[in-house]
Design a protein around this nucleic acid. Structure first.
Lengths: 115, 115
DNA sequence: CATAGCAACTATGTTTTTCATAGCGGCTAT
DNA sequence: ATAGCCGCTATGAAAAACATAGTTGCTATG
């Protein structure tokens, strides 16, 4: 027998699921950057200050993998690739806004110039 | 002179600030675990499945440092320490709930058994 | 045309984080 | 007395993130 609802506090599964993607560095910021519309690789890099090419490439692939971002290639001739939020990704936008409000009201700019 | 609103998309500063703390592994889950009330070190560890002592210790110090969690020691004799959300931390709860809803509606359980 | 530059990545090697495991001092339950 | 829980800290290994350089394809400049 396991213990079904044993009263012991636990982190909510859904929240845990959310942070399996948002709890990794940059992911939230990338999604936020894309909330304004589709962007090319370099545009995302510029929007998310501090991220490196290698990591960005990795993150975009990951976000695409979980279905929050879609990748679209236009074989021009001037080949161009752009990334955009999927429906699931767009649903996150309002939550990100709430998060932003919370941060600016409850988190001091200083505090963690860590890393 | 910098470029004030130059039209180029950028990740919102507030969101970026939020993820400077929530974008680190475990932090969001720890805060969620504490949303139900104060907990001792081991209780948090049990609530956040998978975290190790060393990392938990680190994260709690960090969250305490940015003012989201408060640490309270009761020198019993049976010495006990507990952690609780501060006002700032509590303000995050509703946002975490939104995040949870979003995750269960838009994120598939599978997908990233990463790490 | 040659040189330089941008876009979109990949490759390489180093630095940081995160991790599992072990241990410690104080107290309690058996 | 022995074992066990609580709240941590120490240690070394594994994984992630990082800066930097290089690649291919196309364009803009001289």
């Amino acid at each position: 027998m396991e213990d079904p609802e044993d009263g012991r506090p636990r982190c909510d599964e859904a929240v845990s699921l959310a942070f399996s993607v948002l709890g990794k560095r940059w992911n939230g910021m990338i999604l936020d950057a894309l909330s304004g519309g589709r962007l090319g690789f370099s545009a995302v890099r510029r929007a998310v200050t501090g991220i490196s090419d290698a990591v960005l490439s990795d993150r975009l692939a990951e976000l695409t993998g979980v279905g929050l971002v879609s990748r679209h290639v236009d074989a021009g001739p001037p080949l161009s690739v752009d990334y955009a939020l999927t429906g699931a990704g767009e649903n996150l936008i309002p939550v990100l806004e709430r998060l932003g409000e919370w941060a600016s009201e409850n988190l001091s700019e200083s505090g963690s110039t860590d890393r």
